[in-house]
Design a protein around this nucleic acid. Structure first.
Lengths: 195, 195
DNA sequence: CCAAGATACGGAACGGCGTTCCGGATGCCA
DNA sequence: TGGCATCCGGAACGCCGTTCCGTATCTTGG
């Protein structure tokens, strides 16, 4: 679960060279396939794109969630790290919260099917769900706490529920021009404000 | 699409007796299966429950959506009809809107997987989507208009978007005690209020 | 440089699913 | 009761995720 040598010293390269090459190829192929056909793209399509067999995918990424997380890890990290930064730079915690939520929404609505996968109770997506939550709930919590402390929002909203709600609202956005997820999320956040 | 003889005069009973019997049996079996395993229950399970072959299901209900609509038609109608009634009985349009949305939410969160099916872009669910929208959007529109006319909510929200948002928020409710869809919908509606 | 062992690969194979199809059974009416 | 339109059951097909294993490739010690 933890990618220890992410920066990568070379600890005598545990894995075979072709394996490392394939892993990179797969990540690129998956990213392209996700863009073209959504995160629900058939595994065989990703394999074909990468020019490998399906078995190779499962050896590198035992579950579909692992592959999705690997593809989007950087963006999720960036989103998580933006939280404290926004809090420091914004005039009020509420502003920071709004901007951070917007970041999250922008991320979700540009990844066709990701929001839906996030909420799926399918066992294969459990770890996807878990990764997002582990990484983002604490950040959201910090923003909420700050806004509550500043007396800007009601104190009875939990980060978990808020993030799931926002994620849910993003489902189907982008595939229907009449549905404006961004606006609904704005309304939801507006509903948090004390008046 | 339109079930003409819903009340059912007997127009010389077009269909064979066994066919009519099977249709009723199927509706009951499907309702039970939906309760037990959600609206995504495998077609074979419904067939087994009803003691018929899968072909029989597809003859009576060409798409899965047709079956779902048939099972829930009464409740959807009731919800639609409650709109004007609430508007007439409530002290303010906004109260009526809130109560009506609550009705809709209660309906959705007790039907495991229905909210998700509603938002699915799968072709098989297109008509499900369409039926809900055709029936409920006008009602919601009427409630919104009244609340806007009374100066209670912002005037720039459309019924379609609101209903989809509410439907989205109901996805996954009931399968996770930490996720309170009802509360989030309340917040969303609160965000509509003029302050 | 060359085995021999370790590692990774490809894609056939399996089970579950929705959906289609058709030979055979069944209700209906004359 | 006979003949026909209708309906039924479940086998069959294609798509999908996932597993499995014979084969190919890399690595390393000699």
């Amino acid at each position: 679960m933890a990618d220890i040598d992410s920066g990568s010293e070379r600890p005598a390269s545990r894995k075979r060279a072709d394996a490392r090459r394939n892993e990179k190829t797969l990540l690129d192929a998956a990213a392209a396939a996700f863009v073209a056909s959504g995160v629900d793209v058939p595994v065989r399509d990703i394999a074909a794109r990468a020019g490998v067999g399906v078995g190779t995918i499962y050896r590198h990424f035992p579950t579909r969630a692992d592959l999705i997380v690997a593809v989007y890890r950087h963006q999720i990290e960036a989103c998580a790290e933006a939280g404290p930064a926004l809090l420091a730079d914004s005039s009020t915690p509420h502003t920071a919260l709004v901007q951070w939520i917007n970041l999250f929404v922008d991320f979700l609505i540009t990844k066709h099917g990701l929001a839906a996968a996030l909420q799926s109770d399918d066992a294969a997506f459990r770890t996807l769900h878990a990764y997002f939550l582990d990484r983002l709930v604490p950040v959201c919590d910090q923003l909420l706490d700050a806004a509550v402390a500043a007396g800007e929002i009601r104190p009875d909203m939990d980060a978990y529920g808020l993030l799931r709600g926002v994620g849910n609202l993003c489902i189907g956005a982008g595939s229907d021009p009449r549905y404006d997820a961004r606006r609904l999320v704005e309304l939801l956040i507006a509903g948090l404000r004390l008046r």
